[in-house]
């Protein structure tokens, strides 16, 4: 009986401490968002156009964002590599090069953090007016699906079966961190969704765990956690693969919200 009593007390104490921990996690996470907003609002270039978007009508803001998007695409057209332009107003993702639209893909779905609706035009320009570049990417598929073969006696064409890496069912997802502190999640949805669904879950859960782990580490050191505003694009897995393989390791990206 005594043993049970001690165990119960220990469980209660641990439970209480965990609850406190959860509360801290929530408070610090919200503080992280506020801190990010405060830092961005304080940027000198963001201050130049620091008017409240609610003080102008929505048409003005749409025009403002369209102009910014066109300017960004013109800047990107001067680069030598393939780049991505994402137009949320028309639900389109485009691969472009030298100003030429190579492929235009309709998004199945998209969502982005409320953060992007709350930023003022100055911060919007700070984040998206210049060339935004991908810093790092983590994906479920390889960029170049290279298979190594030793010199053989039969050339590939005469073989009856040709390895087709494209028709293989695989989950196509990737996460890219941009140099402006924004995170993009690309979710490929297959026609045979069940084929890659468990891999998809494992991928996104591992991403969530990494994020939570990092936040907990920062909170443990009594620091406000870094907040990376997120954008999630849902495409068909074929389109997602086409875009992923077409883009260079560190592509430029342009957005229109």
């Amino acid at each position: 009986m005594r043993k049970w009593g001690v165990l119960r007390r220990v469980a209660l104490v641990i439970g209480f401490m965990l609850l406190i921990g959860l509360l801290f996690y929530a408070v610090f996470s919200v503080a992280g968002v506020r801190q990010k907003m405060k830092i961005l609002n304080g940027q000198s270039d963001a201050q130049l156009l620091n008017f409240d978007p609610l003080s102008v009508d929505s048409t003005y803001m749409e025009l403002f964002r369209e102009k910014n998007w066109l300017e960004t695409r013109l800047i990107l057209s001067k680069t030598d590599s393939i780049y991505l332009s994402v137009d949320f107003s028309d639900s389109l993702v485009q691969l472009e090069m030298k100003g030429v639209v190579l492929v235009q893909i309709e998004m199945l779905d998209f969502k982005y953090d409320r953060f992007f609706n709350e930023i003022n035009p100055g911060v919007y320009l700070h984040l998206f007016a210049t060339q935004v570049q991908v810093d790092s990417t983590f994906s479920t598929i390889e960029k170049a699906p290279v298979t190594v073969k030793k010199a053989a006696h039969v050339s590939q064409e005469t073989k009856s079966e040709v390895p087709d890496t494209l028709k293989r069912m695989e989950a196509v997802h990737w996460v890219s961190w941009l140099d402006n502190g924004v995170r993009i999640n690309i979710e490929g949805v297959g026609t045979d969704f069940s084929a890659g669904s468990w891999r998809s879950k494992v991928f996104w859960i591992s991403q969530d765990l990494q994020k939570i782990g990092k936040t907990i580490r920062q909170i443990s050191a009594f620091k406000k956690p870094d907040y990376y505003p997120e954008i999630t694009l849902v495409l068909t897995d074929r389109d997602a693969k086409t875009i992923f393989r077409a883009l260079p390791e560190k592509p430029f990206v342009g957005f229109r919200f």
Binding site: L22, Y25, A26, S29, M37, F51, S55, R114, E118
Partner: peptide
């Protein structure tokens, strides 16, 4: 659910977006 639902919801709620005191000088903009 706290980590995956509640906290992300809080981070996207008005709790996180209390308007900061902006040094907006509308006359200069």
């Amino acid at each position: 659910s706290w980590f995956l639902l509640v906290v992300p919801w809080m981070m996207n709620s008005s709790l996180a977006f209390k308007k900061p005191a902006m040094n907006v000088n509308t006359e200069e903009v």
